[in-house]
């Protein structure tokens, strides 16, 4: 058995080392820097311990975290991110479910064609797709032009730089991530279960609520995780579509890092964000492993 184990070991070791060094280890660094102090140097942070003449001195502090608590900007940004992400996730679900259902009920080759049509936009640049909405939503943009020319509104609506634009952006950008897992689940659904529902006297809407929806639930949950978790830390959408006063934590972190060059505070923001997200990430991982049928 030793031989088999050694064989296993040499196969498993490469991706393992890569992810350990470049995915897990960096969290250690983020944690470390979040305890440091910002200073004008290169790199722009202090050490959190020193080691001289056999003496260990602890220099780290929780000042950055205290700072996050004191300024309600951060508190509001976290809250806003969670709220915007949650609402957008629900909206996204309502748009995505009928689309996924519609595709799953199609015949080949139309099914694969429509699936392709849904995924296609996400292969073009995310940045460009979000940018496309700027020209549409601007005060003198196309949508307002259209509304005013048909007499729907007298004055241009303020759509860009609002929560509305953020919802729209997240739904638009993340739609395929919601559709795909739901579609995959619906495809696994045995059609005779739906027929059995009809056969036993349930009307279409009832069949949907009592059979189709419960049996595609794991796809719905996976889709919600896939949209919600990254949306909380989203930067491009609030940056391009949100207003200057739109607080989302991804944007705040970016500004802390690139504008204020305060790496320790940016790190502390990331650590706090991660603690918010660790539970959804944990559940998402379990679900994904189950979907893949990989043993636990």
């Amino acid at each position: 058995m030793k031989g088999v184990f050694a064989h296993k070991f040499w196969v498993v070791v490469w991706p393992y080392i890569w992810m350990l060094v470049f995915f897990a280890l960096p969290f250690g660094f983020i944690l470390k820097i979040s305890l440091a102090e910002s200073m004008i140097a290169m790199p722009p942070y202090s050490d959190i311990w020193s080691w001289s003449d056999g003496h260990f001195t602890w220099l780290g502090s929780f000042d950055n975290y205290r700072f996050l608590l004191e300024d309600d900007l951060y508190y509001l940004a976290y809250f806003n991110s969670l709220r915007l992400a949650a609402v957008s996730t629900v909206l996204c679900l309502f748009v995505a479910y009928p689309m996924a259902y519609g595709i799953s009920r199609m015949e080949e080759p139309y099914r694969s064609l429509f699936l392709l049509l849904v995924i296609l936009p996400s292969w073009t640049s995310f940045l460009i797709r979000i940018y496309a909405w700027i020209g549409l939503l601007k005060t003198n943009g196309l949508v307002n032009h259209f509304f005013m020319s048909v007499g729907l509104v007298d004055e241009p609506l303020t759509m860009l730089h609002s929560d509305f634009a953020i919802y729209l952006g997240i739904v638009y950008g993340y739609l395929p991530f919601m559709i795909l897992p739901i579609y995959a689940n619906l495809m696994k659904l045995d059609h005779s279960l739906i027929e059995a529902g009809y056969d036993l006297g349930a009307r279409p809407w009832k069949v949907f609520l009592t059979i189709i929806l419960p049996l595609s639930m794991s796809g719905v949950v996976a889709g919600c995780f896939l949209v919600f978790i990254p949306a909380v830390g989203e930067f491009i959408i609030p940056e391009l579509l949100g207003g200057p006063d739109t607080l989302m934590i991804g944007k705040v972190l970016w500004q802390e890092f690139f504008v204020n060059r305060d790496w320790p505070v940016a790190s502390a923001i990331a650590v706090v964000m991660l603690t918010f997200l660790i539970i959804p990430i944990y559940f998402y991982r379990r679900l994904e492993m189950k979907q893949l049928g990989v043993g636990e």
Binding site: V21, F23, F27, I229, G250, S267, A270, M273, Y284, M289
Partner: peptide, 20 residues
């Protein structure tokens, strides 16, 4: 470690890798 990057917000991955 294989699954988490699927949903990890990009700002966190970016910042942590830079610090590394």
């Amino acid at each position: 470690m294989i699954i988490a990057p699927l949903v990890m917000p990009e700002v966190i991955t970016g910042l942590s890798l830079l610090l590394l």
